[in-house]
């Protein structure tokens, strides 16, 4: 008898997997359906993908989303890397620092989003791409921080001691030893921050000004206007990008060296 196996857990797990993935597969399948009504299957086609490529609003929204995600993820990764280096060893106040770093993760997003909206309007920051980059950077920090911190935790301090023993000063040690050993964590952190920003809807919804729609905001308003096969196609593209990037970051965090 395997003491770890409990009856029904396997069945429930398979059900949960189906629950998690069936809707996604249905969506992907429909995105290749030639029929306009989106529910009646006629034959496979790439029509909708061609259409979204030629849709100027989607192209503009995609561009905005990419600029936003790259800027926010870069800024968040740099900030998170510095914070991870600061919290590497125990010191009084480390727990407090980490709680503050996790704050954007714990708070309900809608509350932070509307609060940020109030602040930006009050101090006169114009809504739009700049405002979104600021807000996204902050909620991306914990996502970038966690993999970098995990990598640092798994890294023995003796490598840096060895480098200093071999005449590298602190800066050279960081450049030649710490960073090369840390980069899978940094890249994983950047990837997760990028995905988080790319997929964000709520914050962008409140902070996007006129003419700076992001892809999720565009999708939301399109759904409100009525379900169309184009939405299926653009949603599929977003899903696939997220899945690929998350798998990449997963692989990076498991990298040995």
């Amino acid at each position: 008898m395997n003491i770890r196996r409990f009856p029904l857990t396997r069945e429930i797990s398979l059900f949960v997997l189906a629950y998690l993935y069936l809707p996604v597969f249905v969506l992907i399948a429909y995105s290749f359906n030639a029929n306009r009504t989106a529910t009646v299957w006629t034959h496979a086609s790439l029509d909708w993908y061609v259409r979204i490529l030629n849709n100027p609003s989607i192209r503009a929204a995609t561009w905005n989303s990419l600029v936003l995600a790259i800027s926010a993820a870069t800024a968040a990764t740099v900030i998170a890397l510095l914070a991870a280096l600061a919290t590497r060893r125990a010191f009084p106040g480390r727990n407090a620092s980490e709680t503050i770093l996790r704050l954007p993760l714990i708070l309900p997003e809608i509350v932070v989003a509307v609060a940020t909206l109030i602040l930006f309007v009050a101090v006169g920051i114009e809504l739009g791409l700049g405002a979104m980059i600021l807000a996204h950077t902050v909620f991306c920090i914990p996502f970038a921080y966690l993999p970098i911190r995990a990598r640092l935790d798994g890294m023995s301090g003796t490598y840096e001691e060895a480098a200093q023993d071999l005449y590298a000063n602190r800066f050279r040690t960081f450049r030649r030893v710490t960073m090369p050993l840390l980069w899978p964590g940094v890249l994983a952190g950047f990837t997760l921050a990028f995905v988080t920003s790319l997929d964000d809807f709520l914050t962008s919804f409140f902070l996007s000004g006129p003419g700076t729609t992001t892809l999720p905001v565009y999708i939301f308003s399109a759904i409100r206007a009525g379900i169309t096969p184009e939405i299926n196609a653009i949603s599929t593209v977003m899903l696939v990008i997220s899945i690929l990037l998350v798998s990449l970051s997963f692989a990076l965090t498991r990298l040995r060296r």
Binding site: S156, Y159, E161, A162, V177, L181, R257
Partner: peptide, 11 residues
Amino acid sequence: TVFQNYALFPH
């Protein structure tokens, strides 16, 4: 120094 677990740079 020769370290206990060698600390050879893995990269």
